[in-house]
């Protein structure tokens, strides 16, 4: 399944851009752009998304290479964690008042 916005009819493909703001942080999606190839996509991404030192590293990914979960199956697809609040620390209350727990 392709990413929204990818039409396949435009002369330059669409790229999704991810920027690492600083060492120690993950690359985060910042937006998309058109470019003829990956080299130009990285350069365009630098000009478009890091004009004010917003990043130290850039990833570009062809938009049509991204597979997304089906939005229509939203409820069912993410159902598994529902009702499993024992996966969270706050579920366990008997240790309240006990230090370092």
């Amino acid at each position: 399944m392709s990413t929204p916005g990818e039409m396949g009819t435009e002369p330059w493909p669409l790229w999704e851009v991810f920027v690492r703001a600083n060492r120690g942080l993950s690359h985060v999606h910042v937006g998309s752009l058109h470019a003829p190839d990956s080299d130009m996509a990285v350069r365009n991404a630098r000009d478009l998304y890091t004009r004010r030192n917003e990043g130290v590293s850039i990833w570009v990914v062809p938009a049509d290479a991204i597979t997304t979960s089906d939005p229509d199956a939203k409820g069912a697809f993410f159902e598994s964690p529902a009702g499993k609040n024992y996966r969270h620390a706050v579920y366990y209350t008997k240790s309240e008042g006990v230090k370092h727990l």
Binding site: P4, G5, M7, T9, E10, P11, L14, G31, S32, L33, H34
Partner: peptide, 12 residues
Amino acid sequence: YSAAQTLGITRD
């Protein structure tokens, strides 16, 4: 333009 494209129109 990128935001508009997510709605199903091309930049062209």
